[in-house]
């Protein structure tokens, strides 16, 4: 039985991870720590676990792993504290808003000899896994180009505050695509061009749209859209899509397009109720197994760093108005 704690419920994914821990018989959510006490207490009540207000006491608990779901800029201090306490860490993406912080997080875990994982649940999406298999099988030949999207509704709150998030939609929604591309092709990203802006949501100090162009090893050309462009009235939270152009054909995947349409007169919008597999569950299951087996999680801190490098380069490119080499 892996004993797991959650540090901060600032990121809404914490609720999904907690629910996954609940679902897994091999794991137990031991306690929650949150600098926002009322949020932490509420979550502890919701998931029927303990709330510990002091970080020292929380990290002194008998547990082997923690999930860090704080604001982006606080990942580093929390992972460092958890690692120093000998806990295995699963860190929400992006691993950090800067390359320096991402590297520090990796170094801290290496130094403490604890496993570090980055939360890229897209790797556990069944349709995405199927597409990766198709590409690996060689049936589609060489990969030439791709265009992907990670669109979402506006998350608001700290996500759109530069001082807490380190960046807007490009920061939030580039890393999943980058990680999935690396995972599916086995190639690294070498160059980035990006245009971004605050064009859709008012009163925020981050970008809410990014249009990226990536070049990968072997000359694979990639277009990506990272955005908070889905309106409140949109029937779901957003999407993760890829069109992959290969020598012998084209693969299109809309990872969450397993849905039923729901029309309810009490709601302000129609709703797409998702019925596919839960990628978060696979992610948490792997982390729990890693904790249990004292191994690195499958999606590592270095994977997180690679995605951070591309995101940071995207902001550099947008500011400089030219393509940036990674």
């Amino acid at each position: 039985m892996a004993r797991i704690g959650i540090m901060s419920f600032a990121h809404m994914h914490a609720y999904s991870y907690a629910a996954c821990l609940d679902e897994l018989v091999e794991a137990e959510l031991i306690a929650i720590w949150d600098d926002n006490h009322s949020r932490g207490k509420k979550a502890a009540k919701q998931f029927n676990t303990a709330f510990v207000a002091e970080l020292d006491k929380f990290l002194a608990l008998d547990m082997q792993g923690v999930i860090v779901t704080s604001e982006n800029v606080r990942h580093r201090e929390m992972v460092e504290a958890a690692a120093a306490a000998g806990k295995w860490v699963l860190c929400e993406k992006p691993l950090a808003p800067t390359v320096a912080d991402a590297k520090a997080v990796i170094a801290a875990c290496r130094h403490a000899k604890v496993g570090l994982g980055t939360a890229f649940p897209v790797r556990y999406s069944i349709p995405m896994m199927a597409v990766r298999q198709m590409l690996k099988s060689g049936e589609y030949g060489e990969i030439y180009a791709a265009s992907c999207t990670n669109n979402g509704q506006f998350p608001g709150g700290w996500f759109a505050k530069q001082a807490l998030s380190g960046g807007g939609a490009t920061m939030d929604h580039t890393v999943h695509a980058v990680d999935a591309l690396r995972w599916m092709t086995g190639r690294e990203i070498t160059h980035v061009y990006s245009e971004n802006g605050n064009l859709l949501r008012h009163g925020i100090d981050t970008d809410d749209v990014g249009s990226l162009h990536l070049e990968m090893e072997g000359g694979i050309q990639v277009s990506h859209v990272a955005s908070w462009n889905r309106p409140k009235s949109f029937p779901t939270w957003g999407d993760v899509t890829f069109e992959i152009v290969c020598e012998k054909g084209v693969i299109r995947v809309d990872a969450f397009n397993q849905k039923i349409s729901v029309y309810n007169d009490d709601a302000v919008r129609a709703e797409w109720a998702y019925w596919g597999g839960n990628p978060d569950l696979g992610l948490i299951q792997d982390f729990v197994a890693a904790v249990d087996e004292r191994r690195e999680p499958t999606v590592t801190g270095v994977d997180g760093l690679r995605a951070v490098e591309v995101t940071v380069a995207a902001y550099k490119s947008a500011a400089a108005g030219k393509m940036v080499r990674i």
Binding site: Y144, A145, S147, Y193, E195, N196, G197, L199, V209, S211, H213, Q221, S223, V225, V245
Partner: peptide, 15 residues
């Protein structure tokens, strides 16, 4: 296969 980002004078980003 061609992908382009146009930055419009209005600021609009077009893929």
């Amino acid at each position: 296969y061609s992908t382009a980002t146009f930055r419009m004078k209005s600021g609009v980003i077009a893929k």
